[in-house]
Amino acid sequence: MVEPVLRLEALHKSFGGLMVTRDVTVELAADELHAIIGPNGAGKTTLINQISGLIAPDSGRIVFGGRDVTALPAPERAALGLARSFQITSILPAFSVLENVALAVQARSGSSFRFFGRASSEEALNKPAMAALDEVGLADRADVIAGRLAHGEKRALELAIALAMEPKLLLLDEPMAGAGREESQRLITVLSRLKGRFPMLLVEHDMTAVFALADRISVLIYGQILTSGTPEEVRADPRVIAAYLGDEME
């Protein structure tokens, strides 16, 4: 069997007395789009933060590309090819759209300890950045200051930044959060085009998006994996239905 791109082994994390990640074991195969769903407060973002290195698990291992990265700080994981988007839009608002993406290109192309030369006119940075913007449909907004973009455009920019990192694994933390119906639809189209190019771990609330995109789905409830399987299996699982219906009745 091929070595999975990402393997989470028995991750545990608690804040104070609250268990937010409980014995989570997940494997992500190459080229797979794996979605993690779960009701609010299930610990989805906490999980993503552990994978990307913003917080450290209490116990368990995170293996990325065959290498144990559990103790590695976030920048080094990113340098290994682990890209992420944020649930709350995280861009550089005073930079232009193009510069936001070019910075991501810069991150993976050579040293940034270069003190001379105008970075904003380096073709080697701008070209791949434009290509990434093109893929998410933001090419015509390249010169706009990122902070002035509409909400859905910011989500798209977030995606473009992740793309420009040429990731070996893309972590997507609720990319549709707050986007309108049309914007969501556009993002789904973009994501389905990207599917297969690199593995993605998608955390999402929007069930339409999840079932349209995911190869496999894991259901997270109270920090614990309830079940994993293909969309059909998950859809039919009575425990999932119970968990979701229960959640809605509250």
């Binding site: 990307s52 920048p75 040293s111 990192m165």
Partner: peptide
């Protein structure tokens, strides 16, 4: 305006994002 300066300015704007990009701010 250099590559270095771009990273340095970015660190002011959003250090979390810079770390996620792989920069040790």
């Amino acid at each position: 305006i250099s590559r270095f300066g771009r990273v340095f300015r970015g660190a002011r704007e959003n250090p979390t994002r810079m770390a996620a990009l792989g920069f040790d701010v």
